[in-house]
Structures are given as C-alpha cells and as structure tokens.
Simulated assay, not measured.
Amino acid sequence: MKLSKEKLQSDKLSCLDNTEKAEESETASSGGKRKVVKESSESPDSPEFSRWLMKSEPDSRFENGIDVKFGIEDLKALPDQTGCWDGVRNYQARNFMRQMKEGQSAFFYHSNCKEPGIAGIMKIVKEAYVDHTQFDRKDVHYDAGSKPDNPKWSMVDVQYQRMLKRYLPLSELKKYHLQQRAKGGPLKDMALFTRARLSVQPLTTEEFDFVLSLEDKEPL
C-alpha cells in the first residue's frame, strides 16, 4: 500500500496472497488507484475492451493518517514488479476491471499531481477477484456496507512492463484530443476527456497505439 517502502512491499505481498482469504478531471476526486467516488453501474451490454488506462497518485497524500501515494516507481520496486490494484470504489471503474483479461496492457497514468500524464506501461497478470481492503477496518477504503458473502469491490494484479521513452503529459494529450475532435482522429472520443473522472478507463486499440506512438515524437 502506501506507507513506508517496507510497508508498501509487505502489504502488496499480502494483497497477492489473500486471494483465497478474500475470494479520478485532475482533482482530488480523480483519486487514481484510490478513487472513492461512487457512480452508477455500467450497462451489462457495454462493449469489450482490451487496452486500459489506470490512474494513481505518485505524490504523497494522506487520508486518515495514511499515505495513499502509489506511482509507477512504487510498482517497479515491488517483488516481481507486481502488485494488486486495490482500493477502487467506483462502480464503473470496478466493472471495467472485471472486463480485464490476463495479458492485456494498460497505461500507468499519474494523477492528482503537478503534471498529470502517462508514465509507463503495465500488464494485467491476474483477472478480477475480491478486494480484501473493503473488509479491513484499518484500511482507508474500508466499506462497512460490503459483506464477505456479497462483496462489492474487485481488484486485479498488474505487473510493471516499462517506462515510456518520454512522459506524456495530459496537456499534450489534450491538444491532440481537441485537434482530432474537430478534424477526426483516434483520440477524438478518448475517455480521458469524455469520462475524465474515472480512475480505470477503457481504450480502443487505435487510441492505445496512437498514444504509444507519441513517445517517439517531439512534444506537440
């Protein structure tokens, strides 16, 4: 989780071992991995996606005395560079995680920081399972309304793949979005701008590939 480095590694390992036991506009509300805004559920007929963008906060921010910081460097520092994406408390974001399949790619997006943007790429290595933090009274994401026999919240496991060749700031992505909204292009309907509050967002293959291509280009 997001305390000391030792606590971070310990909690993440615990998170990975608890399967059997358990089986965020850029404001504080965007929350990334720690998003808590609740919204209505996605339609069961929502389209399937194979690429994702997942937000988390790289800078320290304390909730109830606990630092919820978790940037891409924190993921990279974990054993096997793997951790669970816990703490999502938004129904749409949760439902998107439940669509994720092992082996799919996701952008690691730094949110609620001085310069929000895409820092790197991670891979889904375990499909959705019960998020045990919802039952932990000491966790900042404890949900008293969620019961072990009918849990509300899920998480997935992700593994660090690599940093992008250059950081892709939100400001640059927005320029492309505005250009393509007017003239057409892969980013014209990108969820980062049409569903900005969501901490877990779907990407089309075209959106993912276009964004990835930007790492080899000069900043716009």
Rank of each mutant, 00 (worst) to 15 (best):
S41Q: 14
P186M: 10
P151K: 09
C84Q: 06
E63M: 02
D45F: 14
A182T: 11
S50G: 11
G83V: 05
A93C: 14
D17R: 14
H177N: 15
P186E: 11
V158R: 08
T27M: 00
S10H: 09
L78W: 02
G184N: 12
P219H: 09
S213P: 04
A182R: 12
R195E: 13
L3N: 02
P151G: 01
Q81G: 00
K76L: 09
K174T: 08
Q9R: 12
S111Q: 03
A182W: 07
T204P: 03
S29P: 04
L53K: 03
L212M: 14
V125K: 09
F210T: 02
D143K: 10
V130A: 04
K217E: 15
S171E: 11
F210K: 02
D157R: 09
L16G: 07
L220E: 12
M163C: 05
E20R: 11
D216W: 10
F62T: 13
W85F: 15
L78D: 03
N150Y: 06
W85T: 07
E39G: 12
Y91A: 10
R89H: 11
G71K: 09
A191D: 14
A77Q: 05
S154K: 00
M100T: 12
S43L: 15
L173W: 05
L173G: 00
L3D: 07
R61Q: 13
M100V: 05
E20F: 08
G145M: 07
